[in-house]
């Protein structure tokens, strides 16, 4: 087993864990965190794939940067939506 394989498997496990959380949890902020863990799992797979060659693959790194920005955008929206939703429940 190599370092790349180790992180590939770790990434897959994180992804599955996040998926499990998303399916099982009901509280919306926790579900948003689950989605973020799932995303981290995919990113770990991608970064591990990038580390296969002698010089790390810049394409994968760039894709993960893009993915991170997409993730925070969606997280910001989801969090605000969940807060607005919760406030409505309280009234």
């Amino acid at each position: 087993m190599t370092q790349v394989l180790f992180y590939l498997i770790l990434g897959v496990c994180l992804w599955a864990l996040g998926l499990y959380g998303l399916l099982r949890l009901k509280e919306s902020i926790r579900r948003i965190i689950s989605v973020n863990i799932m995303g981290s799992g995919v990113f770990m797979v991608m970064v591990a794939l990038a580390a296969r060659s002698e010089d790390p693959d810049p394409v994968m790194h760039a894709l993960v940067v893009t993915g991170l920005v997409v993730a925070i955008s969606a997280t910001a929206f989801a969090l605000r939506l969940s807060v607005a939703d919760v406030q409505e429940d309280d009234q």
């Binding site: 998303l22 919306s28 579900r31 948003i32 989605v35 989801a78 939506l81």
Partner: peptide
Amino acid sequence: YGPALNYLLLSLGASL
């Protein structure tokens, strides 16, 4: 907001 949040979370999960 409720349906929208549900839609968003599923859509994000699906993207991943």
